[in-house]
Amino acid sequence: MPDRRRRTVLGRRASRRALREAATGYLLVLPALATFAVFVFYPLGRAIWLGLYRTSVSPNLPSTYVGPSQYASVVSSSAFLGSLWRTILFAVFTMPAGIALGIALAMLAHQRLRGIQVFRTVFSSTVATSTAVASVIFFTLLDPQIGLLSYWLGKKGGAGILSDPTFALPAVSVVSIWQNIGFTFILMSAALQAIPDTLLDAARLDGASSWHRFRSVTLPLLSPTVFFAIVVGIIGSFQAFGQIDILTQGGPNNHTMVLIYYIYQSAFVNNDYGLAAVASVVLFAILLVVTLVQFRFVERRVFYAT
């Protein structure tokens, strides 16, 4: 980068001009910054502060200052740790399978065939479904009395898959995978189309098999998109709320009580805002660390074509 050398020869006037330009830049960023300050930084500060209080059973009543000990007691509670563990399980269930399916469908649809657009539309259609709609569809399909899926799985009668502690979280995961498949498919399709044919042609001329071409050419070139999908997927699985609220409400026996639902229940069902604030701040910290770790370690293995 030639900037440093150049900067030393610039005169004071140029530097002042640069300063003015930077000021203009900050001025332009100001509206976005103000929005962030009001809707992100301020609530963040308030949540951290609220975590120091034991809030009353009703929000019109005074709260008691209990200090940082509330952070320690929440973080070490089995309810919190259990919900964190189930969130990790949920991410493990949904993310690898979702990304693999997305790549597989994108490869399938990345053919020059008549009518392939129909399949592309079908594969990406779930992106147009809201979580609520997807959940209600699967709720009906999984119903033990009238559900088609329950019938096929031999689970007719009884309390149903969603009331079964063993299968509830996998079932919710399947719904999430299904709902996110459209988004992953579109991401991967776009990435596939950006891969220059010349590279694959060269590999073909070198005698690489189709699997070899996929592994050694396509996949490395997809890696930035896969990385993006992993980060978004992890965040998405920490964010999974709608499907759990509609399908299981955190049950049976807390087996689908992921962190975000635990926060929701604590705050808006039990009116325990202090506890919920602590859990939210911890969730924020976890996501921050996860994202940093991903950038630090995973990104090194990503191949960026420039």
Binding site: V40, P62, V231, L288
Partner: peptide
């Protein structure tokens, strides 16, 4: 995207009433 999630979670709780002592 990560900032977006963290903020939406926190905003939900930050919207709760102000504690009084």
């Amino acid at each position: 995207a990560s900032a977006g999630l963290a903020s939406s979670v926190l905003a939900a709780c930050g919207a709760s009433p102000k504690p009084k002592t």
